[in-house]
Computed example of a mutant assay.
Amino acid sequence: MNKEQPNFLFDDKQTKKIMRKAKLWSTIKIVGITILITPIIIVVLLYSLRHASINSAQEVMDDIHLFNEISAPNVQISNQLYDYNLFGGKITTTTYKVLGEQHRPYIWQPLNSDYSLFGKLTQNYISSPIQFEGSESLAETSQLERFNEYTGDREMFFYHPKISYDIYKDSISELNQLGENTLVELAVSFDSAYDFDEIKSKLPSGVQADWWWVDAFTKDIMAFLEKDQSTIQANSPFIYGFQSEQSKPIARRSPNNEVDSFIQHIELLRKSKNFEWETNQVYQALVGKNGKLESDDIKIIGAVVSGTPEQLMLLKNQPYIKGSTFGVISNQQ
């Protein structure tokens, strides 16, 4: 006896209808899941980009702070602020100078920088000093007075002891023209390169040293400077040194002395994403024959000092001072 078998065969219309219905539900599910998941992904992505940008800002600010410690004559950082976006941001670094033994702060120009999402400086906005035309004499042209475009104050410059200049400014001899209540910043250039302890002992005890200039010039840069008897501007990209312990309003917490800290900062910056080229140049200029950078390799060829005219007059006729130039002159003690 034959039993009737159920008919499971569908015609083409039924098959297409079922497939369309299945695809529709599948599409609805995908759209629904996408609608639910997309905001979460966007939030996570935005949070990750924000977190990365903030971390990068901190890394860049640390690098800027370290680089300021080995450059920027008598310029100290008071504050750093960042304005981040999803792909990087901007950093504003406010600075000041120290004048005199009372550590009188003198507001200096801010440094504006852009950085990428990956913690790389993309641009530093460096000011251009205002300068006035003078004599066409080469020696005088390279020593024109320059003024800071932000504050209007004189910009200091230095004389390298290995270069023989036709003219040396002697601003120390002009101190007696200033009022006794004046605070003066002065760049002094030495006649030779000295060990740190040796030159510290030469400075009169009544003179405050704010910054020490290190002989950190490569042979190529020296050849360029010698060619035109070029003086070295305080805001030059080729000038390096370190802040004096005397100019620190807050006692140093590091067990290292100034020279050791200078070396440590160079070593740290050589491993950073920023200022790697600059610090490698400094390292190559300073490193000894043993291939290591040590305190004995650090030679001092100038300094920034500050104080009253009476205090700085103690430097008059000191045989180790080759030239001197004014920086900030403030009538507010």
Rank of each mutant, 00 (worst) to 15 (best):
G307C: 07
K322C: 08
K299Q: 15
G323A: 14
G323W: 00
I301M: 11
S306D: 10
I301V: 14
S295N: 14
L315H: 03
N317D: 15
P309N: 10
M313F: 01
D296R: 14
I321K: 01
Q318W: 07
G323D: 00
V304M: 14
I298T: 11
S295Q: 13
I298V: 13
K316N: 15
V305M: 08
I300D: 09
D297W: 10
S295L: 05
K299M: 14
K316M: 08
N317F: 10
Y320I: 03
I300S: 04
I300M: 13
D297G: 10
G323C: 09
E310Y: 09
E310C: 06
V304R: 01
I301H: 03
M313G: 13
Y320G: 00
K299I: 04
M313L: 12
I298L: 06
S306L: 07
P309I: 09
L315A: 02
G302K: 03
M313E: 15
T308S: 15
I298F: 10
D297V: 01
A303T: 02
V305R: 10
A303K: 00
G323Q: 03
S324A: 13
T308W: 05
Q318H: 14
K316Q: 15
K322R: 15
L312I: 08
Q311G: 04
G302C: 07
A303N: 05
D297Y: 10
G302T: 05
L314R: 04
K316G: 01
M313Q: 15
M313K: 10
K299W: 05
L312E: 08
S324G: 11
G302M: 08
L314P: 04
K322D: 10
K299H: 13
P309A: 12
I298P: 07
Q311M: 09
M313Y: 00
M313N: 15
G307Y: 00
I298G: 09
L314G: 11
Q311W: 02
S306Q: 13
Q311I: 01
P309W: 00
V304P: 06
S306N: 14
L314C: 02
V305L: 10
Y320A: 07
D297P: 11
Y320L: 08
V305F: 03
G302F: 03
Q318V: 04
S306G: 11
N317Q: 15
M313D: 14
S324N: 02
S324I: 03
Q318I: 08
V305H: 12
A303P: 09
S324W: 06
